[in-house]
Simulated scan of single mutants.
Amino acid sequence: MDKVMRLASEKGVVLFSKSSCCLCYVVKNLFQDQLGVTPTIYEIDQDPDGREMEKALMRLGCNAPVPAVFIGGKLVGSTNEVMSLHLGGGLIPLLKPYQALR
Rank of each mutant, 00 (worst) to 15 (best):
R51F: 09
C22K: 12
G88K: 13
K11G: 04
G50I: 03
K55S: 13
D2P: 00
D47I: 04
Q99T: 11
G73C: 06
R51A: 15
K18S: 06
D49P: 03
K3E: 14
L23H: 15
R6E: 14
A100W: 06
C24T: 08
S20A: 13
A64P: 00
V27R: 03
S78P: 02
V27M: 08
A68F: 03
G61V: 01
K55D: 14
P67E: 08
V27W: 10
T38Y: 14
A56V: 04
G61T: 04
E10R: 13
M5W: 00
G77T: 12
K18N: 02
V76L: 12
M5G: 00
L94I: 00
E54V: 00
V69P: 00
E43P: 07
K3N: 08
L35P: 01
I71Y: 02
L57C: 06
A56M: 08
F70Q: 00
M83V: 13
Q32A: 10
F31M: 09
L57K: 01
V14K: 05
G50V: 01
M83I: 14
G89K: 07
A68P: 05
L91C: 01
A100T: 09
M1D: 08
R6Y: 09
N29Y: 14
Q32N: 10
I92M: 10
D33A: 11
P48C: 08
G12W: 08
Y25M: 07
Q99V: 12
E54L: 09
S84H: 14
G61P: 03
K74A: 09
F31I: 02
T40R: 08
V76P: 01
I41A: 03
E54T: 09
V66Y: 05
P97C: 07
V66E: 05
L91W: 02
A8E: 06
A64M: 12
F16C: 06
C21I: 06
L101K: 13
N29G: 11
F31A: 03
L94K: 11
A64N: 14
D33K: 15
P93A: 00
D45M: 09
R51I: 10
V14P: 10
E52Q: 13
G73S: 05
G77S: 06
G61F: 04
S20V: 11
A64W: 11
K18I: 04
L60V: 01
I41L: 02
M83Q: 09
P39H: 06
V76R: 04
G90W: 10
P67W: 10
K96N: 07
Q99P: 06
